[in-house]
Amino acid sequence: MKRRFKDIVAFASGRLFLIFVNALALLIFCGLLLKAAPILQTVSLTDLLFSSVWHPMKHQFGLFPFIVSTLAVTLLAMLMAIPVCLFASIYLAEYASRRFREVSRLIIDILAGIPSVIYGLCGILVIVPFVAVVGEYLGVSTTGYSLLAGGLVLAVMVIPFIIAISVEVLRMIPGPFRESALALGATKWETVKYVVLKKAAKGLVAAVVLGFARAFGETMAVLMVVGNVAQAPSSIFDPAYPLPALIANNYGEVMSIPLYDAALMSAALILMTVVALFSLTAHYALSRLGDHND
């Protein structure tokens, strides 16, 4: 009887925590929504999303420059990261010896675990001056604190993250699938091209999507090198001001200006919604990875 009782107590408390975790997501979403809602009383949704005028003191809250900055810096980073990730993970999963793969994985895990402020710090030291020099060489005036610097730092940050997932995905494809091409006399690369990549396509897309989500919400590393000027950038050498940086830089002083906090909350809400959609996509892509019926 006592054993049964314990079991039931354990069951009930497990349920409780389970419900808490599920409620947490809802709570965060609703909390942000509730806090962001007042902004729509003075600013229309289209103005909020597509107006470029950002004058908190005059109650003008156009998030457009920040949204464009976020998208631009993320896309730029992914553009640079994707080829590197694809080739590096194919090498690790398909060509490397087990020893080399294991060591590389360790290194990549370490890279993925380095805190983002450290990436930002190294970015200030290396990438910002580098961009300035490149800009000068090309005859563009730039301080180096720019969209390009943000994209580069972000690319370096997400590369290990994407590689770690991609290698997992590639290793999950059973060896015999490769054998069926190799046994026909296909080269290793042909096997990768016609069999492995096709089998892994969904999982690799998921890895990239997760990387995109990670980059989209990354705050500190980008904030430190991107320049933070509230204006939609027109070239990659212009400074930019992504949404996470906007929130991080201004949250301390919001209380003094009415509706400012609501504007920042709507920025957070946009971030969360976009990232949640991406996570959702990746979740379904990865959860169907097991079946090979295609």
Partner: peptide
């Protein structure tokens, strides 16, 4: 399944969002 999905979403949620939410709370 739903819980795992929710966990994946929470896992991906940017830390600045946690910060903002935490501040509200």
């Amino acid at each position: 399944d739903i819980t795992r999905l929710v966990l994946d979403i929470l896992w991906g949620t940017p830390s600045i969002v946690y910060g903002a939410f935490g501040f509200v709370v």
